[in-house]
Amino acid sequence: MSIYGFYFDGTRCTACKTCVYACKDKNDLNLGFAYRRVFEYTGGDTTRDGAGAISSDCFTYSVSVSCNHCDNAVCIEVCPTAAMHRDPQTGLICVDSSVCIGCGYCALSCPYRAPKVDRAKGHSVKCDGCNDLIKDDKAPVCILACPTRALGFGKISELQAKGEQVNIAPLPEKDYTLPNMYIKPSKDARPVGTDNAFIANPLEVL
């Protein structure tokens, strides 16, 4: 079980992606890799009624997601080498790059697409919750960078008091992996499995 998790306030996030770039900077990530991604989720219709009046139920909202360090982590379950493991001190899920063979099983299985195989590095890469900083009693860089203070990080018990376990579109049903991401959903947040809505920035996040 993880000790720590992320917090996300959907009522504050502006989808500015400062978290994404702070993370890319700290982890020196190349094009094609981002441990944190901001999903822009858009849907609804604009319609004209018989009298010519136009009405709209269009919406868009953003969700900033990294690895959720899930309690029921499918990446750890399927990993043939045990490279994908939980740090015994922090409970954060990390990749042991000296053991990983880069088979991509974690990347295939994770419904949040958190791990990805970096063939140039020869192993899987993903958000480790800034495990090094946490051990120094500091916060992850994405949290520090967020200009609207929409992101948080802390002990699960504290996060549970602030929000609900993430269970909104376009993310999967929480019961699959029990993510350690707690959120305050925005007014427009839609339930998992919503139709008539889509990820508006697929090239940026998938």
Partner: peptide, 25 residues
């Protein structure tokens, strides 16, 4: 050819009993 680090392929035996991929191998 599917692995990023084939020279470590034997590590795939670490997950015996737990990882379905290890069991297959």
């Amino acid at each position: 050819f599917h692995l990023a680090t084939p020279q470590n392929a034997l590590n795939a035996l670490n997950g015996i009993g737990r990882s379905p991929l290890t069991n297959e191998v």
